[in-house]
């Protein structure tokens, strides 16, 4: 290894260019397999994430399709001002944050707990059945999921009927703004808990069984083993997942909300992304909706950055 490296270094010392590009070129020749593997990811981000970014400038312009992105006149922060002074601004911000934070607070621990529970199951057959059953909702189309939710929570739906036995008022849940967030979050957990637990289950298998043996010998109960062996074993996975999850605090998926909401519950259900959808795609206000979307992304970025910093200080685990 060392000799090979030295040869390469001494070769390059002999009049060969040592610029970044040249070194990269040599590296690519040497490790082309690895570069080939990463190529699709690079292409993906270039084509779908970086290239469209130049379109963001229409947030500062009055975009009209005939004049194109560059030809449209600059208007400065006009669209941002319009959004901040909009009647709906605070409501959108509040709804976006409340739906998202509730999803994180309840939705994030759910797959972890679920994975821990699965880990304790000793009957392999039963465990596999449970896993399969809980993965399934993940593969059902969102449109179908939302139709099911609507059906089950209607005035005479199965969930409403069951709840009314324990004293819940029998109303169409999606017609009352106070039920929207719980419905959204709980159905989300139901759909994703199984799928989300996979990564934690795989992290669990990486824990050295010797640790459990040692704990047992020391007289630790199952609960103590979970607390002191299992959880610390998957902490780094949890933190990475949490940072990633925090990055999407502001990007509440609009698809599910659009499929579920109606004018009557805009008060709790209308979020920034659905607002952008209505403005941009239904009312053709491209520049305005881009400005709103950009605002959303900037906040998202700030949150990821902050969480990453905190995590680095507190637990020494971080994305960068």
């Amino acid at each position: 290894m060392t000799t090979k490296f030295q040869t390469a270094a001494s070769e390059s010392g002999l009049g060969k260019s040592n610029s970044l590009l040249a070194r990269l070129g040599r590296d690519i020749r040497k490790n082309y397999g690895a570069y080939l593997l990463i190529l699709p990811a690079i292409l993906y981000y270039t084509i779908f994430c970086y290239k469209p970014m130049y379109g963001i400038i229409i947030a500062f312009k009055d975009f009209s399709p005939g004049k194109g992105i560059f030809g449209s006149p600059w208007v400065g922060l006009k669209h941002f001002e319009a959004f901040f002074s909009s009647y709906y601004f605070w409501r959108l911000l509040k709804n976006t944050l409340s739906i998202s934070l509730t999803s994180i607070v309840f939705g994030f621990p759910a797959p972890i707990i679920f994975a821990l529970l699965l880990n304790e199951i000793r009957n392999m057959k039963f465990k596999r059945v449970v896993q399969t059953v809980t993965y399934m909702p993940h593969f059902i189309s969102l449109v179908v999921i939302c139709s099911l939710i609507k059906l089950f929570t209607a005035e005479d739906g199965i969930i409403t009927s069951l709840l009314s036995v324990v004293g819940f008022e029998p109303v169409t849940m999606l017609s009352k703004s106070r039920y929207f967030v719980p419905l959204y979050v709980i159905s989300g957990i139901w759909q994703e808990v199984g799928w989300g637990s996979i990564i934690y289950l795989s992290a669990l298998t990486a824990i050295d069984p010797g640790l459990y043996e040692a704990a047992t010998i020391d007289g630790a109960t199952r609960w103590q083993q979970t607390l002191h062996v299992t959880l610390p074993g998957i902490t780094s996975t949890i933190i990475i997942m949490l940072i990633l999850r925090m990055g999407s605090v502001m990007s509440v998926g609009y698809e599910k909300i659009i499929l579920l909401y109606n004018e009557g519950i805009f008060e709790t259900a209308d979020v920034i992304s659905t607002f952008v959808y209505r403005k941009g795609l239904q009312q053709f206000q491209w520049s305005y909706s881009t400005a709103v979307g950009l605002f959303n992304s900037v906040i998202n970025f700030a949150i990821v950055f902050a969480v990453n910093q905190i995590s680095r200080r507190v637990s020494e685990v971080s994305l960068w």
Partner: peptide, 19 residues
């Protein structure tokens, strides 16, 4: 229009259902 009509449809629903 976009602000006013959204508000009107919202209130229509709420007035009808009693919210």
């Amino acid at each position: 229009e976009s602000e006013i009509s959204t508000y009107i449809s919202e209130c229509f629903v709420k007035f009808v259902n009693g919210d």
